[in-house]
Write a protein that binds this DNA or RNA. Structure first.
Lengths: 202, 202
DNA sequence: AATTGTCAATCAAGTGTTTAATTGGGCGCC
DNA sequence: GGCGCCCAATTAAACACTTGATTGACAATT
């Protein structure tokens, strides 16, 4: 759906269009013409704001990362911030499948693109630190066993969560199972959420 | 390194060349001409064996999956097949980084390509069943607690292992940590391997 | 008048695929 | 044994189309 006539914020519109197209077609099928069309502008206008396709992609990376990071910040106040965090990630990639796909595309491209690699690594490390911080706090206030290695456990949690962001996983219906087991191991298992059912009928 | 003059098995040579190029450049940069060049044949010869690029890719999928599956089959004989399995996966993606990249590419493409999606899902389900089978056997012979939910635990293990196949993860050095914690939770932790140190200096 | 934003038209370099031609080995037949 | 014939394998040279990027003109705003 080309959003014609977005008078102001052409730049932002182009980035969002590129983000959407990237999720839809992947880097393989990302065409500047399509992006311009989806933003409702001429191809030359795109090159007016982004001199090269690479620059446009940089904008998309920025957009995706901000989208990812903001929702990652722990919210809530009790010591079950940890469980909230797990479910936030699950909900994030569930409610916005595009994000998971874009993250995957960026992860793969980072193998060939040092610039993207740097950003991904930083985000990853930040995520790791966040989870480790939550774990340490939980250990301190007694909701987790004191002998827990917070660093290795954080690595485990991030690894598990990251696999959720892959498209393949969600189709199997195994992701909820995996998360439940993770919560159980952590000893923070909790009964059903209100609202939507999480029983997959497969 | 173009392997000129591979008189027989042109078909196989082309598939291996495509596999290599796919790992090197991704779907984004996969060019039939490059594949032909790497196999040391003319572009038309490629189309003699594979009428279309899509057919060539199918061959690559087959190749990658076989490569993946064979190493996945549990070997060894004792009840610590489970630990062997975890480490086999780690070793596999560590010794052959191309495989991890290709798997990632295929996983992403499966979001747009039903044919690939089917193969990936089947491989995934097979992997899940394998791990679950190992878990059940371990429960039966007493090396794992009987109240363990083998299905959910298998989902968790596969999720964790799958994240290892992503290029991003390995760079952080967190993958060994994650695996150690997983083994610890399962209660199958084992002393240090001989050889390389696994202490990350961060 | 100068600056900014936008577009139709165009270009050069690819890009998957096809065509027409060549090579060489095997097979039947005299 | 020599001869014509076929056919799998291979290639150089296009073909038709795509794709990122550029240009120059035109309007709107300052």
């Amino acid at each position: 759906m080309p959003q014609v006539a977005t008078p102001k914020d052409r730049r932002g519109a182009l980035i969002r269009a590129a983000y959407s197209k990237l999720a839809e077609r992947g880097f393989e099928g990302l065409r500047t013409r399509d992006v311009a069309a989806e933003a409702g502008v001429n191809i030359a206008t795109l090159h007016y704001y982004f001199p090269t396709k690479e620059k446009l992609i940089e904008g998309v990376v920025e957009h995706a990362m901000s989208r990812f990071r903001t929702t990652l910040e722990p919210h809530g106040s009790t010591s079950d911030q940890l469980r909230n965090h797990l479910r936030s990630v699950q909900r994030l990639v569930q409610d916005e499948p595009d994000l998971g796909i874009v993250m995957g595309e960026l992860a793969l491209r980072s193998a060939r693109d040092p610039a993207i690699a740097r950003i991904m690594r930083e985000t990853n490390e930040g995520w790791h630190r966040t989870v480790r911080g939550l774990l340490r706090k939980a250990v301190k206030d007694g909701s987790l066993e004191p002998e827990l290695d917070t660093d290795e456990t954080a690595a485990m949690i991030v690894a598990a969560l990251r696999s959720l962001t892959l498209p393949m996983a969600s189709s199997g219906g195994h992701s909820e199972q995996a998360l439940r087991q993770l919560e159980r191991w952590l000893g923070i298992g909790a009964p059903a959420r209100k609202g939507r059912s999480i029983r997959s009928s497969n």
